[in-house]
Measured scan of single mutants.
Amino acid sequence: DNLVIALHSYEPSHDGDLGFEKGEQLRILEQSGEWWKAQSLTTGQEGFIPFNFVAKA
């Protein structure tokens, strides 16, 4: 599955970004460039995340 774990917390800075906490698990929905579309397994919310803040779970 496309699961990743957050290496750092991220505060959203643009509409459509997904904020998350360090250690949170996310499911990657789309990989494109440096911003990936993801869904939080904690909150169920979707949005874009910086790819370098996460690692394969």
Rank of each mutant, 00 (worst) to 15 (best):
D1C: 15
N2V: 12
N2C: 13
L3T: 07
L3K: 05
L3C: 07
L3P: 02
V4G: 04
V4S: 04
V4D: 01
I5A: 03
A6H: 04
A6Q: 02
L7G: 02
L7M: 08
L7R: 04
L7A: 05
H8Q: 14
H8E: 11
S9D: 11
S9A: 11
S9T: 12
Y10C: 06
Y10F: 12
Y10H: 06
E11M: 14
P12H: 05
S13F: 12
S13P: 05
S13L: 15
S13Y: 11
H14C: 15
D17W: 14
D17R: 10
L18I: 07
L18A: 01
L18V: 04
G19T: 06
G19C: 08
G19I: 04
F20E: 01
F20N: 00
E21W: 07
K22Y: 06
G23H: 05
G23D: 06
G23S: 03
G23F: 05
E24L: 01
E24V: 03
E24A: 05
L26D: 01
R27W: 11
R27D: 03
I28P: 02
I28M: 03
L29A: 02
L29F: 06
E30G: 07
E30M: 08
E30W: 11
E30I: 09
E30Q: 09
E30R: 05
Q31M: 14
Q31S: 12
Q31F: 13
S32I: 14
S32N: 15
S32M: 11
G33A: 05
G33C: 07
E34H: 14
W35Q: 08
W35E: 05
W36M: 07
W36G: 03
W36C: 10
K37Q: 06
K37L: 15
A38N: 00
A38T: 02
A38V: 13
A38S: 00
A38C: 07
Q39P: 00
S40G: 01
S40D: 02
S40C: 06
L41T: 08
T42W: 13
T42I: 13
T42H: 10
T43G: 03
T43L: 02
T43S: 10
T43E: 01
G44V: 02
Q45T: 07
E46P: 03
E46L: 11
E46V: 15
G47I: 03
F48S: 05
I49H: 00
P50L: 06
P50W: 08
F51A: 15
F51P: 14
F51L: 08
N52W: 15
N52L: 07
N52E: 12
F53A: 10
F53M: 11
F53H: 08
A55W: 09
A55C: 13
K56N: 11
A57D: 11
